[in-house]
Design a protein around this nucleic acid. Structure first.
Lengths: 112, 112
DNA sequence: CCCAGTACTTTGCAATACAAGGTATCTTAA
DNA sequence: TTAAGATACCTTGTATTGCAAAGTACTGGG
């Protein structure tokens, strides 16, 4: 048992939410997403992200288009489907509820 | 893919944190914990809680004592070890960081 | 033509929440 | 005294999924 494992586990729960949120702002490809998550200190690796994007696409929340790159192989640029946008809104509410629940359970509030 | 699965997944990440936090306030047994989590809208079932308590005990974060009950079999009352208390403090910080990271990624802040 | 860089994909493993069923203890009441 | 019901703790099997590591494929430079 170590704190890194706990961090990793907490991350898991919000990964899909953060990824959908990032994609909702602009069309991006995998490396963009990895960089954005890294900037936010949410460490994720390729082996996690790619299968997750595929899953979200198969669930109809994402779509993508290929785009040629001047510096390597073509990239998959992802965007949110209409269903993805609706889902993201629900996730927003779900996240807010979770934060409220945890703060309630741990007796914290915003001023602490 | 449905929103319930997402809720469940978000819950997972904070379960240990919430349970340690509940136990830190007073000695409790499993049913107390289930009730407290339920009140906070963090649904958990027995089959999840018991193995988790055993794991936390084996990791040295919890200890327990048996106590007779006037209305059924004896209960295991759990308390935090010193290590558990230290760990809980780290989890507090980890949670705060996660909230900050998610809010950053999803471009939200406390006033929204 | 090989090598380095970039991008996407796949495979195997480990952790763990949950559903469902099981065991044990205690109280109550016929 | 014993059967039924309530309470409490535990175990097993399954599905999900994040991650490490290795693989495939495209591009341009030397």
């Amino acid at each position: 048992m170590n704190i890194e494992r706990v961090k990793s586990q907490m991350r898991k729960g919000v990964l899909e939410y953060c990824i959908l949120s990032i994609i909702s702002k602009e069309e991006v490809y995998a490396s963009d997403i990895l960089q954005t998550l890294k900037d936010a200190k949410l460490i994720v690796v390729e082996g996690t992200l790619y299968p997750l994007l595929t899953r979200l696409k198969n669930d109809g929340l994402l779509n993508y288009r290929w785009e040629e790159s001047t510096s390597g192989p073509p990239r998959k640029y992802y965007g949110l489907t209409e269903m993805g946008q609706r889902f993201l809104k629900e996730m927003d509410a779900t996240w807010d509820e979770l934060v409220a629940s945890v703060n309630h359970t741990t007796s914290k509030n915003k001023n602490q």
